[in-house]
Design a protein around this nucleic acid. Structure first.
Lengths: 248, 248
DNA sequence: CTACATTTGTGCGTATGTATC
DNA sequence: AGATACATACGCACAAATGTA
């Protein structure tokens, strides 16, 4: 493997407790596929990180609480989830299509619906006048029951008045568009950043403090290039890899 | 703005000190352009986060140490850097070209040079036999003196023996390729994840614990599609936005 | 210049959390 | 489980620097 090994680098006086640094490192290693179903023993881990065994136990306890590990006395510590989805980002990005074949079930849930006025940033992204009424839908997307991403989506309220109901009914943005007469759409641009998850995202994505999200800001458009949707999507970074295929 | 306000959500007993959570939140807000040159007063920040002023001071002290803020007695706390670079990822991704116009200076520094044997993953990515000798170059890229990314790059050692010297001399991958007879190259695929920076990355990119990196794994190829370079690039997430332009 | 409000800087006592042995 | 050392967070008080009236 050219990937990194579980580096035993923990830093004291950094404002982050050793047990949390170790828990984060273990979570990352599992997402990278470093272990195969079973964790090394606590004594080995303690030696690797250069800390007391109690400290490793605190880290493991946090990950058990999180549902990622399962400790069995006398047997060891099992890894419960080891999957990382690969989500393709192309000109034709579709949530369900992207994860088909990697997961047995996908669903999109509408968690909030608001009406707001377009500020300058949204107006220019969507090509509408300042102050135009917009529909803002907050969604959570899951694969195999695990939250993968949450998104805040903006549409022209006049044109897409039935969007919320259509998303709720169909469980899919693509099918909701189809119900409203948009048979095809493409992605114009995507801007990516990453950061620690805030409280709202931790709640919606079932993440723990210290978890990282990738934030994608994208504009979708009809095939002729007219913008119809501005979306800010936050992916749980340790559950998904974004794959950009450059067309030839 | 459709962006989030500085949410005063801090979590106790989470294994992450309050002052570090607050420092991370402030760093993020600055990267999002929430403040204009000057921070709110310590008392206002303390009220916003629901903590003691000492705790806010600890967060600010960490960011002053980081070089992001500058406190002046009697005046307030100034923001020193407020820039976030936008780095385009396309079929023709070039570090210097991408940041030209956004920064007055760019440079790439070679920090390590090794020779290794291709494992199965590298062999298939580069299209060579298992065990073939590869050149591994570790680079740090800066813009305006600020580290933006660090990358580990793999080349066929036989074909690109002079790569290290060429990179050192020219300060550019593109120009180093040119010296070795590769006049053009394209990017085949990019895989993106994000996570907390490890110790090595914190050192090379001058980051603090809790900082986030975006990791891009990419294969570059000659224009006819023959792979020549496998690169793992880590971007400091609070200093850069990756912009994916979908070709028309 | 003084007087005052505002803001950052400092000291100390106490309670709780973290990490080791 | 207990003992110890250190880090974290709070509350209060006051000092020092800056800007303004």
């Amino acid at each position: 493997m050219s990937g990194k090994k579980l580096s035993g680098a923990v830093e004291r006086r950094s404002g982050v407790a050793l047990w949390r640094q170790i828990a984060d490192a273990i979570r990352q290693s599992i997402a990278d596929g470093e272990f195969e179903g079973m964790m090394p023993g606590e004594i080995a881990l303690a030696a690797r990180f250069g800390v007391n065994r109690h400290t490793v136990r605190a880290a493991i306890a946090a990950l058990v609480e999180e549902g990622l590990l399962d400790s069995v006395q006398g047997r060891g510590t099992l890894i419960r989830r080891q999957t990382r989805f690969t989500f393709p980002i192309t000109r034709r990005t579709r949530f369900s299509e992207g994860l088909a074949g990697q997961s047995s079930s996908r669903d999109i849930r509408l968690v909030a619906e608001e009406r707001i006025e377009a500020d300058s940033m949204l107006a220019s992204a969507l090509g509408v006048e300042l102050g135009v009424e917009l529909l803002r839908l907050t969604l959570v997307s899951r694969a195999d029951g695990t939250p993968v991403s949450t998104s805040i989506n903006h549409f022209d309220a006049a044109r897409f008045a039935g969007m919320a109901a259509a998303v709720r009914d169909t469980g899919s943005i693509t099918r909701a568009y189809a119900e409203l007469g948009v048979t095809d759409y493409i992605r114009l641009t995507t801007e990516l950043t990453a950061r620690l998850a805030d409280e709202r995202e931790r709640l919606l994505l079932e993440l723990k403090p210290g978890a990282v999200v990738m934030e994608a800001r994208a504009v979708n458009a009809t095939p002729d290039g007219a913008p119809i949707q501005y979306a800010v999507t936050c992916f749980a970074a340790d559950r998904v890899t974004l794959k950009l295929d450059m067309p030839v």
